[in-house]
Amino acid sequence: MRDELIAKYPFLSAAKKFIDAGESEVSYEELETAARSVTSLLSNPAASLTVYSTPAKAARSHALARLLLATLNNRFVTRRYANARAGQAVRELAGENDDDFLEIARDLLPSVEARGRGESALFVVSVFDFLRAGGGLLGANLEKGVVALDRDALSALIEEAVSSRISDFAEAKPKRLPAVVREAAEELRRGIPANALPSMQAAFRGSHLSLPCVQALLRGVPEGKRYYGAMTIAVACAKDGLGRDAAGEVMRQYVDSNERGSSPFTLREGIAVLDWVYKHGGEINFSCRTMREHGFDDGGRLCANCAKRQAFKQQMQHQGKQFGPNQPQRKFGRGFRH
């Protein structure tokens, strides 16, 4: 791979040798610069690519930015950054010649092959690479295990793959962090522009969406609970009377905040859940009890509804009445099932 390409696209695998060969110590100034590059991209995701003078500088800057994001440990911000970075790269990629384009594509999707050149070039990629990168199958040109794409469609797939590669911290996260890195990450946290943080617009302030347990969900849930979390979010949106578009925005935030895990929980899946809930309208109730059973109770804190129930229970006990499964279920507020 030519150095010039690594200077532009330091997320490529070939950048690793420059990291390995580079200085292992890092100064606060250097970290500060990396933090600034992150905040500046977050405030202006449409900015064009910064091209470094050497591949080593580009690789180091990229690695430090990821180190800071991993330390910051905010999936939402990471995803926003990774998406912006992938978008930048793909806009730049449009200007690359056929050979460079193919070489970069292969770094992310090893099975890519070109059929023809120039404007009318067609690319094929194995269905397994296609799925790993997050491509959607239903509309794909799939035959005999390969997906055929034109250059635009392949670029879109590359964008997905770059974003996943940048936000996957499986290897980037060191066990023990030097104090200087923690300080710089704190600096970064303070500098994150408001537009890069989960929005707290009116949509998020409905009586269900504003419950502390639902708010905790919106900050992300671990793998294995993502589907149920999405279902809860969708029900909360429906109960709050949000329009389908506004609900889609809430779902996007939820998906962006989630742990990527061994397989990503995609926006497509989140939207499918949302569509299902909206189709089944009022049939589904929001249940605080189920929230607690799934450990979605924001560290045991009680929401107003749960607190009300607790108080009621205590009052009943005080009056010597038994409150248990043999008592009729009582409802608090519309749509709440305890």
Partner: peptide, 21 residues
């Protein structure tokens, strides 16, 4: 070999493909 390594998301997509649009 490839089938054994498919992620859950990939399997969901394959199932959805076979069930059709």
């Amino acid at each position: 070999e490839e089938a054994l390594r498919l992620t859950q998301d990939a399997r969901k997509q394959i199932a959805a493909y076979i069930k059709g649009p």
